[in-house]
Amino acid sequence: MLELNGLNKTFNYGTPDEVKALSEVSLGIASGSFTVILGTNGSGKSTLLNAVAGTFIVDSGAIRLNGRDITASPEHVRAAFIGRVFQNPFSGTAPNMTIAENLSIASMRGKNRRFSTALSGAAMDGFYSRVKELNMGLEDRLENNIGSLSGGQRQALTLLMACWNRPELLLLDEHTAALDPKTGAKVLELTKTVIEKDKLTTFMVTHSMQQAVNLGDRIVMVYKGKIIHDFSGADKKALKPKDLYELFEDIKRREMIDPATSEILKANYV
């Protein structure tokens, strides 16, 4: 159970670049549920995920994960419970280290790292069998640097790494957006399999209406740092991509009108 309570975050406070990226965001997410977050560019989706992951500490509000208050914990402490996949395929892996070394770091998430060999024979066998499940032929390249892999391969590995030790919460930030459609679809398929297998609580940002409709059991729509729509249960099931398009059109229209109306008001009253 993830509970967000009145989260606020303002970037560059007190400067001309001030952005209110999150304002009074409250959300409760049941364990085992799959929530998709939608919103236009700059609406605050990534910021929301980063707030949960601990990339920054929120200005106010509270974040609780399965009863623990993690509002003020640093990122690496929360990482014990949270797995993440980033939009950029290069963010989630260490390029100058081998596949095996990357996996070994992931396999220690939430555990005490010690002075014992990272790549013991047993560990290598473990990496081999789980990488083999990806069906990408990477199991024979465990000692190659990750930097030599394609974006899709790296993203698949990042996903594997994020879920290596079952996380209490999985955060996916447009993790297929930078891949070509075919690879993207493959990684998405993989995502579904992993989530279903481990019954992971998932929080996924996407720009794809189709993905939003196909995946998950809840859709949260964000606009200017606020939650403006929240569909779950039967409402969510009933949604079609077309409905979502319309909601977006609506937002766009509002954005168009807002400045215009204010101009009219100004002309009349100032």
């Binding site: 990482a79 963010s91 892996t93």
Partner: peptide, 13 residues
């Protein structure tokens, strides 16, 4: 090599 990744995997960077 990649502090963002390390941090996300629970390393106290």
């Amino acid at each position: 090599d990649n502090p963002q990744m390390a941090s996300a995997l629970g390393v106290n960077t």
